[in-house]
Amino acid sequence: METEQINSYLDTAGNMIIEYAPKVLAAIVILLIGIRIINKVVSMAIKSMSAKGIGGDLAPFLGSIVGIGLKILLVFTVAGILGIDVAAFVGILAAASFAVGMALQGSLANFAAGILIIIFRPYKVGDWIQVPGEFFGQVEEIQIFNTIMVTPGHKTLIVPNGEVINGVVTNYSVKGHIRLELSFLMAYEESFPKLKGIISDALQGLEYILDEPKPQIGIESYDTHNIIVAVRPYVAPDNYWEATFEVNERIKNALSANGIRMAYSEGVELGSIGE
């Protein structure tokens, strides 16, 4: 009796080997070849993203996501070749993905926003930007969930990408130059053409002031004691603060050297209006 059972087991094992051996062999071959192909695809994707200027840390991360997705498809393919019902696995995976998605809803929104930033590139590393919430600084790193910015005071801002993508982003670097918004006070009795010439001469030869576009100088408005004179030179975004300090100092010295007087707010004094 035992001999008959053993023979039966051997026959069953032999039949299973004959039936499943080709499938197992094919599954192993497809798995090995598929992994090699996926690794090459991921490597090509990382090189392509790096060539397009995507950060060195971000490109491998996105490549790993692509690799994981392709390997999951490969596993399902191999399971199908072996005759395993993958419908149950797909259902479990879908349920798990839904649960994780609900738990990480905010993080997934930042993740999706990070992908949009990478694709459409409203800004890049090194740009000076202002994002919703009046956060201003230079982009140091674009991560998958956050954008890292450094303020002029060297404070590090970690701004969620979801907040960035849902509002207005001001990019000060995309044009290559920005305009200083400076104002000076001029007494009513002073000559504006004279003052304009003094300021124009003072701006000549300054290190950080661009020749093109040309600086703009004009009367901005009037108040009870002074005429508000606007001075609008153009500078490179990286030189914003240095240029501001340089222009203020140079104009102050020029006004002093030419004897330009300024009205003060203490009391009320009537005076004549200059040219």
Rank of each mutant, 00 (worst) to 15 (best):
Y123K: 08
L62M: 15
G267V: 00
Y9T: 03
I35G: 07
A87T: 13
A95Q: 10
I129D: 03
K196T: 03
S183Y: 10
E207C: 07
L62Q: 09
T224W: 10
N15T: 06
G218I: 09
V75H: 06
K252T: 10
R232C: 12
S173Q: 09
L31Q: 06
V86K: 06
G80Y: 00
I117A: 00
Q130A: 15
V131A: 11
V169Q: 04
V168I: 10
H225R: 10
I228V: 13
V100S: 12
D238E: 14
A96W: 12
G63E: 12
I37S: 04
H225V: 14
L157D: 02
D211F: 14
E275I: 07
A230V: 05
Y240R: 14
E212L: 10
E190F: 05
S191G: 09
L210P: 04
N171I: 13
I142W: 04
A112K: 11
F245L: 08
R179K: 12
V66P: 02
L58N: 04
S107K: 13
K214A: 15
E269V: 08
I158A: 11
V78S: 01
L116E: 15
G126T: 03
I68M: 15
S43I: 12
V169G: 08
L270V: 04
G63H: 09
K175I: 08
Q216W: 08
E2Q: 10
P22Q: 07
M149H: 00
L70I: 00
D127F: 03
L157Q: 07
Y188V: 09
I115A: 02
V86R: 00
N258H: 14
D211T: 15
I33Q: 03
K175M: 10
I54T: 11
I65N: 13
D85M: 07
V159Q: 03
F136L: 08
I228G: 04
V150Q: 04
L108T: 04
I81G: 02
I165H: 04
V268P: 05
E275T: 05
E19D: 15
M186L: 12
I199G: 00
F111N: 00
M102F: 07
A263H: 00
G153K: 03
Q143R: 11
I209R: 05
I251D: 05
E275Q: 12
S64I: 15
P233W: 02
E140W: 05
M149D: 01
I117W: 02
V231K: 00
T156F: 10
I144R: 05
E189S: 15
V78P: 04
D201M: 06
